[in-house]
Design a protein around this nucleic acid. Structure first.
Lengths: 341, 341
DNA sequence: CTGAAAGCGCTAACAC
DNA sequence: GTGTTAGCGCTTTCAG
């Protein structure tokens, strides 16, 4: 592929002039400029971003690692982040860890090797070693999104998940339910743990104790939620409502209800956390607590860019200064929860 | 960040030795090797992929441009492609054109500037200028996926969309329906056009003509399908079945049916094309025609890699040799279509 | 087995 | 306004 030297030769100027003309970084006479642009066309020149990055010592790329690209929530978040980054002149390299912490660390390393300007990651691991690797992974500034890693000194942008769990549970309590089941995600992941805590808080406020038999764990996926929901529904004193810790697990619960011959919401109510793009197309329409995805994406990019530009302190410099931007969820009451009569 | 020179200095060897040791590209005494690895640890060295790529004149990156990242079909396809690429030692840069051809071309350019080894694109434009830009976009090999661009001399991997439209329509005809509506995507996009052709073929085989009043156009999105479906359902001689040209448009139609007080499938049947990850969780469970997404992703990566390695001829060299790999869809009959009694 | 040195394509001083 | 040149970090001959 043609390089800057080919253009210079074709236009009869030096490579420095080509560079200044193309980047508009200095005065170039109109005549030469035109000759240069013509030459670019003629030889089919596309600047070599690799060489440019090497010379400049930086890129206009930000890396994004999500834990599950096929989850509509992460799809929407990816979209929001891409939009925000693009508006600031950055392109996004999207990676999918598939809820696998080893793969995630691998991807982080890859992004680091590619010298991205910064990294946004929805972390999927846990434990001390994991946290240390995340903390150590230096070079590019890194901030966590969606999932908070306890004790990790990195900026974080996400939802108030305790509030989310509380809100949805309080809503269901207000409808008169008392036996409310909870289907969580992987233990140790903040979105799941905090939502569960919120659920417990709401119960406590109503003078209730969480019943261990009604508190289930899945792994954020629909199929698993389906599987764990079945025995739940087979109980003689089955719950009258189910709270799922995310959107697709709510769908799994819904499916189990249908397959076992129950009706939602007549026989049992279901609510999810995280809205679902097509929730209004479903029957019953799912009651959820929604995140301000657009704002979260924008905030994450904004925060990362502050680190990139050096406005924000590096975590090594001021570990205690790790900031959090926590957004509040919104309750969206639809048809999948009915008042207990 | 530490560079190879820092490592060399720390280990008391030359940078050449460090390079050979780290890449295993030549003999290095065990003792020096250990010293070098220790030095890597000590100085916190991460190789600079930028410099490496510049020197090597190539990268292990492939670019993927999808037209709508939030559509579950593309989510699943992205996953399949990433998996296949990773197995071959390539990382994928995922980009989203959002059905905007200008943005798509911009992204293609960006990938080109980043000197990716190859590009996979689900094209969203049409017209001669667009096709020419796609064809011209040289440097990295490029193959189209999912959507076929008529007259473009590039390899293609995708579905037999005519068969898909035919299969689903034939199925509905077999159920006794005669007034079958079709909700298409953007005209000029092969997935939509071909599926429509298949629909017409099936009707013709049954001795039927497509009724223009029943053939609607949306833009692949759920909301638009919802909007166009409403007048359709308000007709006095409304159709007894609706075929939607993709998954999320089927959901939009389903929603319109529900909102207007009809029931599916009792009052009207609905079928989509492209399966939906959570279709079994929906009520009614959606009848669709599914693509072998995993295989398509694998085939796309495989084909691209042949170009990258130079096994396949460049399109400029043998324009007439553009290959296609077309997969067959599978009918999945569920509950959203009922026999007409 | 190890090291010196060239050069990938580009930008930014700096000199003219 | 334009050209010369050093050097970003790395790999790879080619000598030793």
């Amino acid at each position: 592929m043609a390089n800057i030297r080919d253009v210079a030769k074709h236009a009869g100027v030096s490579i420095a002039t080509v560079s200044t003309a193309l980047n508009g970084t200095g005065p170039v006479s109109e005549k030469t400029a035109r000759r240069i642009w013509d030459a670019v066309e003629a030889v089919g020149y596309a600047p070599n971003g690799i060489a440019r990055s090497l010379r400049l010592g930086k890129t206009k790329l930000i890396g994004l690692v999500v834990s599950e690209i096929t989850n509509p929530f992460f799809g929407a978040l990816t979209l929001a982040i891409e939009k925000a980054a693009h508006a600031q002149g950055y392109a996004v390299i999207v990676c999918n860890s598939n809820e696998d912490d080893a793969r995630e660390l691998e991807l982080l390393d890859l992004l680091r090797v590619q010298r991205v300007a910064g990294i946004l990651v929805a972390p999927s691991g846990q434990g001390d070693k994991y946290r240390d690797s995340l903390a150590r992974n230096a070079g590019a500034p890194l901030i966590t999104i969606d999932r908070h890693v306890e004790g990790l000194k990195r900026d974080f942008v996400g939802l108030d998940n305790r509030a989310a769990g509380r809100m949805i549970t309080e809503y269901i309590l207000r409808l008169g339910h008392r036996r409310i089941a909870f289907i969580g995600g992987r233990t140790g992941v903040s979105t799941s743990d905090h939502r569960y805590e919120g659920y417990c808080q709401a119960l406590a406020s109503a003078g209730l104790q969480p019943d261990p038999a009604l508190c289930l764990r899945a792994d954020f996926r629909s199929e698993t939620a389906y599987t764990v929901a079945q025995p739940l529904l087979a109980m003689t004193d089955r719950p009258t409502a189910i709270v799922a810790a995310n959107n697709v697990m709510a769908l799994g619960a819904l499916q189990a209800i249908g397959d076992l011959g129950f009706r939602c919401p007549q026989d049992i109510s279901v609510a999810g956390i995280d809205d679902f793009p097509w929730s209004t197309a479903l029957r019953p329409r799912l009651t959820t607590v929604a995140q301000p995805i657009e704002e979260i994406g924008r905030a994450a990019v904004e925060m990362l860019l502050e680190h990139i530009s050096g406005e924000a302190a590096a975590p090594e410099a001021a570990p205690e200064a790790a900031r959090s931007r926590i957004f509040l969820p919104t309750l969206i009451a639809r048809d999948s929860c009915a008042a207990l009569t």
